[in-house]
Design a protein around this nucleic acid. Sequence first.
RNA 1: GGGGGCAUAGCUCAGCCGGUUAGAUCGCUUGCUCGACAAGCAAGAGGCCACUGGUUCGAAUCCAGUUGUCCCCACCA
Length: 892
Amino acid sequence: MTRNLNKTYDPTGFEKRIYEEWETEGCFRAEIDEDRKPYTIVMPPPNITGQLHMGHALDQTLQDVLIRWRRLQGYCALWLPGTDHASIATEVRVADELLAREGKTKEEIGREAFLERVRAWKELYGGRITEQQRRLGNSCDWERERFTMDEGCNKAVVEFFVRLYEKGLIYRGKRMINWCPVCGTSLSDAEVEHEDIAGNYWYIHYPSADGGKGIVVATSRPETMFGDVAVAVRSDDERYKDLIGKDVILPIAGRKIPVIADPYPDPKKGTGAVKITPAHDPNDYEVGRRHGLPEIVCMNFDARMTDEAGQYSGMDRFECRDAWVKALDEGGYLVKTERVSIPVGRCYRCDATVEPMLSNQWFVRMETLAQPAIAVAKDGRLSHVPERFEKIYLHWLEDIRDWCISRQLWWGHRIPAYYCETCGEITVAREKPHTCSACGGGAFRQDEDVLDTWFSSALWPFSTLGWPEKTPDLSYFYPTSVLVTAYEIIFFWVVRMVFSGLECMGECPFEHVFIHGLVRDSSGRKMSKSLDNGVDPIQVIDTYGADALRFMLVNGSSPDSDMRYSEDKMESSRNFANKLWNAARFVIMNSDDETGSEDDFAPDEAALRPEDRWILLKVNEAVAEITRNMEKFELSLALQKTCELIRDAYCDWYIEMVKERLYGEDEDLKRAARSVLVAVLSDLLRLLHPYMPFITEEIWGCLGKDGRLIADRWPSYDEGMRERYAEDSAKIETAMGIIRAVRNIRAEAEAPPARKLTVTVVADDAAQADIIESTAGHIERLANVSSIVALVSGASETRTKIPEEAMTAVVSGAEIYVPLDDLLDFAAERERLAREKEKLEGEIKRLSAKLANEGFVSKAPQAVVAKEREKLAKAEDNFAKVAARAEAIRDK
RNA sequence: GGGGGCAUAGCUCAGCCGGUUAGAUCGCUUGCUCGACAAGCAAGAGGCCACUGGUUCGAAUCCAGUUGUCCCCACCA
C-alpha cells in the first residue's frame, strides 16, 4: 500500500509523529549483540540549566549523522544521552531565583533547604532540554539516559576519588589558587579566561629605612601593597646591588620590609625591582617560600580589604585601589603612571576578575596521570580530527599543573573526606568511617566542599556504562568509538576523560575526537545572551523543519572552522527538502503497482535502457565516494555529493529522461522504468537518511516498504558495475552534451521556446552516429527538437546534407547544426562563433605552449602528456570547424 | 610573550596529498506555468584563487616571507 504525499513539503505534519513511532518501536535501542560490532558515542551532556542552542544542534546533529550511518551499516550503534548537573551554573541560577523571589540568600536558608530547591528545580527544568533534543531527531537510546549526579555516577565519582587518594594522586593543601569573589569559589586553571585590558603601571617610591634614596617599583595592583613583605631585585642588577639586605619602608603604612636578591625579577621589565606579596600572587608566593617570608593576607575571599589595609579595611578591592593611589600621589610616593595593557584572569561563568588567593583546597596530582594521555595521542591510539588539535591537546598536557578540584559550593558531589571531630585526622573513604584510625574517636564531619563539575564529567564514557561495576554494557560498548565536541571544550573535558579513562579502564575512552567549530550569527558574531543574537533551534525547526536545520548545519560546517547561521541557508535547505519531496511524489504517482513489500526490485538486466544504467552507475560510484568521505569524517562533503546526486542526476536528468517511457503505452518499458525509479530513490533515501532522517523515513513509508528506513541497510558498492554499464552510460553522457548544446543555441538565438527545432549532427564516426541515433528520443524530448539527423563526418553524402545556414556547436564526438530558418538570427550566431573561436584559440595557445616545453614532454608522466596532446588535437579540430562555419555565414 | 586558523565570484563557502576551461548556494540578468516541484526549470553574467619570492616541466594547491583578519595558550612589575 502506498500513501500519497501532499503537494507541498510540510515537515510539521510528520516529524513529531515519526519520532514517536521510532521511539515507541525501540528503534534507538542498542541491544548487546556479540555477532555485531558496537559503535558507541556518549553524548556530551548538556547542562540541566540549558536550553537547546545552535551549538548543541550542530554538535548533536553530527553525532546523530554518525550514529544513523553506522546503524545502517549494521553496527550495534549506541548513542548514550544524559545531562550534567553543572555545579556552578545551576547553583548560581537557583540562588539568584531565591533572592529574586524571596529576598533570601542561600546561606540564610541553609545547605539542606537550598539543595532541596535545586533538586526541585532540576525536576522541573532538567528534562526540558531532552524534549528539545527529540525535536532535532536525535536517535539516542533514551532508556540509557544518565545524569552526572545519579546514583551510579555518584558511586563512580567516590570510587575514583578514593582510588586516586589511595595512590597518592589526590592531596589536600594550602596553595595559590584562582578565586572568583563573585561565585565565591576556587576555580581550576581551565576555568579562568585570559584577557588583556587597558590598565596602568603605577611606579611607586619605597623610601629607604636608613635615609638613602630608596627604590621604585612598578605595580598594576597597588591595593596588594598591604601584603608586601619584601622588594626583590636581581643580585647582578647594578642599579640595586647596594640595597640588597637593607630595608625600605612601605609608603604611608610605614612597615619596614627587606630588599632581597632573587632570580625572579627581570631587569628589563618595569624598574627591575618587584614588590613581593606572597599571599596574593603566584610568583611572589614562590619567592616568599624561597626566602621564608611571611604571607600577609590583605584581601578577603569577598574581594574586600582586611584589617591589614588599615583605614581601607572592608573596602572593595577596586575602590581601595583608586583611593590608595590617590593617597600615594598626595603623599608624594607616586613617581609616574604608565598606561599599559594588562592581562587579567576572568571567571568563565560570571566574568568577574579572578584573584590569586592562598587557600586550602584538594588537588589532583597531574604529572603521572598526564603521561599515558600524552602517549595515546602520540602513538595513534587516540586521533584528533582535524589533526592539528592534537598539538593543542599535547601542549596543554605537557604543560599541565595540578588540578584544583574542590569548590566552595553546595550543589555537586560532596568530597568523600571526613575529619575526626576529636583530633582532626582526615579519612578518605567510600563510606563515612566509624572510628578514627588516629585517635579512635567516633565523631566525624564530612568536608563541606563539592567537586569540580568536570571531575564527574571526566568519568562519563564509563560511569554511564556501569563502572565501577563490571557490567555487560561496559565490556561491550567501552571503549567508545568517537567523541564529538566543540574545540572550546578540549581542556575542560577531552583531556580529563582521556586520563581518567586510562587510569580506570586502562584504555583510551574513544578512538577519535571529532572537533567542530561554533555556530555564529549571520554577520559572524558569536551568539550570546548579552548581544541577544541567539537563534532558537526550536523556532527554526517550527519554521523550516528539523531536516532542513540539520542539512544547513552539516552542509555549512567544515570540521575545523566556525560557521554562520542565516535565514537564506535555511530557505535553500528547506527548498532542497521540497525538491526531494516532489521527486518522491512523482515516483509514487507513477509507480503505484511497483512499490510495495518486495525488497526494491529485481532488475531484469535485459530490460534496462541506457539511462537506467547511467543513473545506476552514477549512484553506485557515488556510494563508494560518499562512504569514503564519511569514514574520514568529511560529512559536509558526503552530504554535498548526495545532494548533487539527488538534484542534478536524479531529478534534473533521470526523471526527465524516463518520462518518455512512463507516458508511453508499452507496459514492459514502463515497468522497467518504474522499478529503476524506485530502486534508485530507495538508495538515495538511504544515503540521505543520516542527514535528513524525517523526510527520508516519511517517503520510505509512502513507498510501502517493509520495515523502517532507520533500521534498513547502507547501500553497498558494486565493483563490477562500472565495467558492465560504462558503455551505456557514455551514450547518455553524449546525449546530455548535445541537449545542453541545443538548449544553449536556442537561448543564444532567443528562439521561441515553444518552437521545435530540427537538428543535424555530424558525428566523428559511424559508431558515434549510431549512439546519437539511439538516444534521439531523449534529445528530441529534452531539447524540444522535432527531428534529428545523424551524419558521419567524411562520408560522401554528409557535405550535401549539412544545412547551409545554421548555428553550430561542437561537443565531444560531434558537431551540431541547427538551421537558421528555425532560429532566424545571423548576428547572434556570428557573435557566438567569434566567442567560441576566441575560447578555443586560448586553449590551443595554452596547450601548444605546454607541449612545446621540453621539460614538460620529457618529465611529466606519459599519460599526462598524451592526454594533453589529445586535448590539443581536439581543440584544433574544433577550431577549424568553428572557423569554417564563421566563414560560411560571414556575409549573411 | 608563545602557538594556530583563515584570506577563492556581490554574499556565504567548497576545491588545496600539484596537471579541468577554478566550482556550489544565495543574490543578479534573460527566458519559461511544458502532465513532481515557481520552495521550480533552462540559459547566462560575474574570479590576476590577498601580496612577494621560491621549489617544479607545471602552483589556487607545496615552501618561505609580507599584509590583513580571527582565535587559542601564557603566573598580570
